[in-house]
Amino acid sequence: MKRVYVNEKWCLGCHLCEYYCAFASTGETDMARALKDIRINPRIRVEECEGISFAVSCRHCPEPLCVKGCITGALRKIDGIITVDRNRCIGCYTCILSCPYGAVSPSEDGAIQKCELCIKTHEGTPRCVLGCPNGAIVFEERGE
C-alpha cells in the first residue's frame, strides 16, 4: 500500500506541509480565504531540533496501537487506512496516549484528528506531499 514517508535529509523545516494539510481539510478552493487569521491545527507536524527537521504524521501501522486502544470503535483500519468515525469518538484520548509517534491530536471540537490520507479528495496524492517543495515527503509503495 502507498504510504506517506518523510526524509529528514530533504526536509527544510519550512512548515508548508502543515499549511497544505490544514488547507486540505477546509474544503475551500483558495488557501488565503481558507486560512486567513486562523491558527492552524494540522494533522502533520514538523518536528525540529538543532538544525534537523522532519514532518510527522500517521504511519498507518500494520498493527495500530491506537485502533487497539480505542474503546468505542471510532478508530478503524479500512483498506489499510486508519480512519476516525467522529460520531463515535468520545474524546477519551486513549489513542493519543498510545500512539508512539504523536500522530494523533485533539481537534477543535474535542474529537480526535489524525491523517486519513486525503487521497480521495486531492488528485490521489495527499496534499502535504504535493505541497512539499523539496521532495522530503513522498507517497509511495515500499512494501509492508
Partner: peptide, 13 residues
Amino acid sequence: QERCIVCRVCERQ
C-alpha cells in the same frame, strides 16, 4: 496582507 496567512515560510526561507 489580504492574502498573507502568516505561515512564515518567507521568513524561514
